[in-house]
């Protein structure tokens, strides 16, 4: 009797192990055969498409905090970013202002021209072409969308391990250290709010591109921010890159940021 119960438990244990290993097995199997299930996502007719979305920020046109604030507010407002959090430790931000020395550490001369020294720089997720955050994520909750190169977050899959935050060399990611909902100024019903314990960041307004609108920051910038396909020679960003000297943040790390700055 006793030994048969033990036997049963052994078999049950091994079976449980087998069930748990199934998804792992599937992952290896998928790599070998490459037969992905056919999933079709229908696109809106007006949807804006690109091979790799990129942004050019003309900092000459954004000289003061007053010029940046409407841009930052536009983004945070439509994305339900909790701006009323008082404790700075719990801060969540998608796009914000930094001085040159912090936006471009390692690139700053000790004696900078006064204009650059005093210019506020907009920083946000760089939607890197080779994103270290996506490499680090253990669940695929953050991923680079193959169709247009946007680095996205699945708030429902994220386990809140914050490996992506350690991996990001730009400090672009925020963690919900507490329930953000009471701290949203005015909830936008068209975009999801987040729960505590998940990571979030700029999504290049993927939800707006899908219905033919430009990103909110671009719209609010009065032409100071350009947005377009990096691999379309006719796009606005490519035209700007052709005619202006631009810099990117921490280019030497090889992550290939998609946000360019005209200084």
């Amino acid at each position: 009797m006793k030994s048969s119960r033990r036997r049963f438990l052994q078999i049950a244990g091994i079976s449980a192990l087998g069930l748990g290993a199934k998804p792992v097995y599937d992952a290896f199997a998928k790599e070998e055969h490459g037969d992905k299930p056919e999933i079709q996502i229908l696109k809106n007719d007006k949807a804006l498409i690109a091979k790799q979305w990129a942004m050019v920020i003309d900092t000459r046109k954004l000289e003061s905090t007053e010029a940046l604030d409407p841009i930052i507010n536009a983004c945070h407002k439509i994305h339900n970013v909790p701006t009323k959090l008082e404790d700075k430790r719990h801060e969540v931000k998608w796009i914000w202002e930094e001085g040159y020395h912090h936006a471009f550490p390692g690139k700053a001369n000790r004696f900078l021209d006064e204009k650059v020294e005093n210019t506020p720089f907009l920083v946000l997720c760089n939607h890197c072409e080779n994103p270290p955050c996506c490499r680090a994520c253990p669940t695929g909750a953050t991923f680079k969308r193959e169709s247009d190169g946007i680095v996205l977050m699945d708030f429902h899959r994220c386990i809140g391990c914050r490996f992506c935050m350690a991996a990001c060399p730009f400090g672009s990611r925020s963690f919900n250290f507490r329930d953000p909902r009471p701290f949203i100024e005015e909830t936008n019903k068209e975009f999801p709010t987040r729960m505590k314990g998940v990571v979030e960041k700029c999504n290049f307004c993927a939800e707006r591109l899908a219905i033919g609108k430009m990103p909110a920051c671009v719209e609010a910038s009065n032409g100071a921010i350009a947005f377009g396909d990096l691999y379309d020679p006719e796009s606005e960003v490519r035209k700007l890159l052709k005619t202006n000297y631009t810099i990117r943040r921490k280019q030497g790390l090889g992550t290939e940021p998609s946000v360019y700055y005209i200084v």
């Binding site: 992952a27 790599e31 669940t139 386990i159 914050r162 314990g197």
Partner: peptide, 26 residues
Amino acid sequence: FIIVDLGQPSRIFNVPLYPTLNSVLF
């Protein structure tokens, strides 16, 4: 210690459910 550090501990099984071979944490 890993479990108490997670923001969403109830989702811990997302790690074996969505095996991500490029993640060191996996």
